[in-house]
Amino acid sequence: MWLARLIAAPLFVGLFLASPGFAQVSNDPAAGITYLAEVYRPFIYMDKGRPVGLAVDLLKLLWQEMNVPEQPIEVMPWPRIYESGQWNRHVAIFSVYRTKEREKLFKWVGPIAKGRQGLFCLCSRGLEMRSPGDMTGLGIASLRDTASTSKVLQAGIIPTYAANAEHAVQLLRSGRVDAIALDETRFRRTIAAMGFSAKDFETALILSEDPLYYAFSPDAEDTLIDRFQRALDAVTKRPVYRALLTFYADQGL
């Protein structure tokens, strides 16, 4: 994993030795949380059966800063994660767009990174859009319970729900929908993985630009949220955090 290689590098050994270690704390509230995430490169993905990525490595640095032993991270489909984060106690999910619509659904720690949601179409379609109101009358594919979908629903449009990003791209290319509402990073990575040229697609409209956060269930104690936020604020001031961002920037962040 990237973080393991980084810790092993002599340049960074001093930084980690100067930080609190992974003491075995049995009654720490941060160790009683269920951490859930979906595969969403470069923030989280699987490598040799283990979750890795920017948000995972950053979370490990937060645990270390708080003197919390490393916790298991469960990877599952986004709809299950989103529901669990709202209704189950002691859950943290990531990486989540912090939008106005979601503000009161969770308690937030972040930001992890900046993000952008857009409406994407085929260049041959030639859509000209200036505002969400221009989506009226269009067939739009999106994924359930995503921030992009909420923007489409706000415009009064019921989208065609795709099973995943690959399915959404297939719907677009087959002409069954006019556009896709999706996170920009996910869209770009999906078309590349499917072997399609980015030159064949264009951004018809930017739906919103919001930061990505760790989202905790609404029953989380404010003291715990403050503790995570202080740890994040401390970690992001250190060279190891800048090195982490540089590493994942090389992977298309």
Rank of each mutant, 00 (worst) to 15 (best):
L3W: 05
V13A: 14
L15N: 10
L15V: 13
L15Y: 08
L17S: 13
G21N: 00
V25I: 14
P29A: 12
A30W: 01
A31V: 03
A31W: 00
G32H: 13
T34S: 13
L36K: 05
A37F: 04
A37Q: 00
A37I: 04
Y40A: 07
Y40E: 02
R41W: 01
F43T: 08
Y45L: 09
G53F: 09
K60M: 11
K60A: 10
L61P: 07
M66T: 07
V75P: 00
V75A: 07
W78Y: 08
E83M: 15
S84K: 13
W87I: 15
W87P: 10
N88Q: 15
H90S: 15
S95Q: 07
S95V: 08
V96M: 11
T99P: 02
E101G: 12
R102N: 04
G118D: 00
L119I: 11
C123A: 15
R125S: 06
M129I: 13
M129E: 10
P132S: 09
G133I: 12
D134Q: 08
L138Q: 04
I140N: 06
A141K: 02
K151F: 12
V152A: 07
A155I: 10
P159H: 06
P159L: 09
T160R: 12
A165E: 05
E166T: 13
H167G: 10
R173N: 00
V177G: 04
A179C: 03
I180W: 01
L182K: 03
F187Y: 03
R189I: 09
T190S: 04
G195N: 11
D200W: 12
E202T: 10
T203P: 09
A204K: 02
L205Y: 00
S208W: 04
P211T: 15
Y214C: 02
S217E: 00
S217L: 07
P218A: 09
E221N: 12
D222I: 03
L224Y: 05
Q229I: 01
A231G: 07
V235Y: 02
R238T: 00
P239F: 06
T246C: 10
Y248V: 09
G252N: 05
L253M: 01
